[in-house]
């Protein structure tokens, strides 16, 4: 099955796809922003502050999703000794980190008018900060070691350490008393968010996912070019 992941076969895709993804991203983002900022109603309680959620929640979702993917790919790469999995992980990480920071910052901006504080050492918020630190460690490891074998092992270990934190983030609001509200969207039961607010949220999530895909394709393309021009380490 790993033949599918042969770098030279997907090089064609990664070098051509970004422009289409960029186009799609711009379209979806425009629709999403119009929905979120203009069309969607204000909240009965927090009025316009609710609009921050349309950035905050998708950013948090994507950063969690990317970290989980990185972990899975790194473990596969480690178990099957497949270099390509590590390169995919490496290319995915930066956008996950950026969305993690966006989630923290927008959460802070939302927290001030609603909760009355910029920051609280609450289980959800703290665990999200820890995730950002794991992302930072992961990204730094790729820069400080020259030996590939070493990077692969250490980065995999970091993702394994960090993945323990992901379910903690998800369930922190259910397990403990937190300032952060519990999840509004449940797959199994009825969501406690009105549909007029749910749709912009989902469109924004799609836009952010496309952005991650775009950054990933560009980063990954660079990695493939590096392989093609062996010996050239920095572009």
């Amino acid at each position: 099955m790993f033949k599918l992941f042969e770098p030279n076969k997907i090089f064609k895709i990664t070098s051509k796809a970004p422009k289409y993804v960029l186009f799609l991203f711009v379209v979806v983002l425009t629709v999403g922003l119009v929905e979120a900022l203009v069309i969607s109603p204000e909240d009965y309680k927090q009025s316009d502050a609710v609009r921050i959620m349309y950035v905050h929640v998708p950013a948090a979702w994507i950063s969690l999703g990317i970290f989980s993917s990185i972990t899975l790919l790194s473990i596969c790469g480690f178990v099957f000794k497949n270099k390509n999995f590590f390169l995919i992980s490496k290319s995915l990480a930066p956008s996950g980190f950026v969305f993690n920071i966006i989630a923290l910052v927008t959460g802070s901006i939302w927290g001030k008018p609603t909760w009355g504080t910029w920051w609280a050492w609450d289980a959800r918020i703290t665990s999200m900060l820890i995730l950002a630190l794991f992302y930072a460690m992961y990204l730094i490891v790729w820069r400080i070691y020259d030996k590939e074998e070493k990077v692969y092992k250490i980065s995999t270990f970091i993702t394994i350490l960090g993945i323990i934190n992901v379910p903690i983030i998800k369930y922190s609001v259910d397990w403990w008393n937190t300032l952060h509200q519990p999840a509004s969207i449940n797959i199994l039961s009825k969501s406690s968010i009105h549909s007029s607010m749910l749709y912009p949220l989902l469109i924004m999530t799609a836009a952010f996912a496309l952005f991650s895909l775009l950054i990933f394709l560009m980063k990954y393309n660079t990695e493939l070019i590096k392989i093609k021009n062996k010996g050239l380490d920095r572009l």
Binding site: P41, E42, D43, Y44, K45, Q46, V50, M53, T114, W115, G116, T117, A120, L179, Q181, P182, A183, S184, S192, I193, H194, S196, M197
Partner: peptide
């Protein structure tokens, strides 16, 4: 210090 805790319900005023 007083912090307001927001719940997980989001809806427009008319629905409320």
């Amino acid at each position: 210090k007083i912090l307001a805790k927001h719940d997980e319900n989001y809806m427009p005023p008319e629905v409320k």
